[in-house]
């Protein structure tokens, strides 16, 4: 028996929005620790890693480990049938292993819906992600990062991110010319969410495909802040924390000079 109840049901809408450009199907792994998902996009350039810890749910029961192969397009259709203030419960029954049920309850309990969705048999490839001490970790407002990625993609297909202790510089070039955006580390901020904080061991310069960074910024509604972890010649980690529950992380391989 698996049952996970989320009072803040709209969180699932945000999570699906945050994966829609990268994944069409994925396996949700459920265990006593929580629900997780790890999947690469079809071109093997990026990886999505979601963690929702069991203690972040309003009720959680998972008697035995369960892997649910889910068509995310179908799940999105079903989750769209919920209202933003609905309580969502995800249920899977051991006697009926080919389906998952989503139950939506209005806050006053006057409307209760349930949708049963067919599960898929997916060949899941799991990647082992090594523990890495990153040379640079930048925390910045998620909306600012979204804006930078959007603006840079007006100029070119790639962005070069150069991070020093003074700040982070995003540069792009293309047929129309070049663009640079430099964001300094915050001197002092009243609100933690508005801060730009740089933790640095050594300066790093890396180039990434803007197409993917823009896909990652679909997660902006999940968190006020985003963190970018970088080391020379290894994939970038873009992390959006999901308050009291876990995270949505994206890994993107850097571009290299041919």
């Amino acid at each position: 028996m698996f049952e996970a109840r989320l009072v803040q049901g709209s969180l699932l809408k945000k999570i699906l929005e945050a994966t829609k450009d990268l994944l069409t199907e994925a396996t949700f792994d459920c265990s006593s620790t929580g629900m997780s998902l790890q999947a690469m996009d079809s071109s093997h350039v990026s990886l999505v890693s979601l963690m929702l810890r069991s203690d972040g749910f309003d009720a959680y029961r998972c008697d035995r480990n369960l892997s649910m192969g889910i068509n995310l397009t179908s799940m999105t259709k079903i989750i769209k049938c919920s209202s933003n203030d609905d309580v969502v419960t995800i249920k899977a029954d051991d006697n009926n292993p080919d389906t998952v049920t989503f139950m939506f309850e209005s806050p006053n309990q006057e409307k209760v819906s349930d949708f049963e969705m067919k599960l898929m048999d997916l060949d899941t490839e799991h990647l082992g992600i090594p523990e890495t001490d990153y040379s640079v970790v930048v925390k910045m407002p998620a909306q600012e990062f979204q804006r930078v990625c959007r603006d840079m993609s007006q100029i070119g297909e790639s962005v070069t991110i150069c991070c020093t202790k003074d700040g982070i510089r995003f540069s792009a070039s293309g047929d129309l010319g070049t663009g640079n955006i430099k964001i300094a580390q915050s001197a002092n901020v009243d609100k933690e969410e508005e801060a730009v904080v740089i933790e640095m061991q050594e300066a790093v310069t890396l180039t990434f495909a803007l197409r993917y960074l823009n896909f990652f910024t679909r997660a902006t509604s999940l968190s006020g802040q985003v963190s970018l972890s970088m080391s020379p010649e290894v994939p970038l980690v873009v992390e959006y924390k999901i308050a009291d529950m876990g995270y949505m992380r994206y890994y993107l391989a850097p571009k290299i000079e041919d």
Binding site: V45, L47, H126, L127, A253, K255, I256, D258
Partner: peptide
């Protein structure tokens, strides 16, 4: 022009 790396070159399948 820079070339896109494959993620699997960094993270092995487990």
């Amino acid at each position: 022009t820079p070339v896109q790396n494959d993620l699997q070159e960094f993270f092995a399948l487990v």
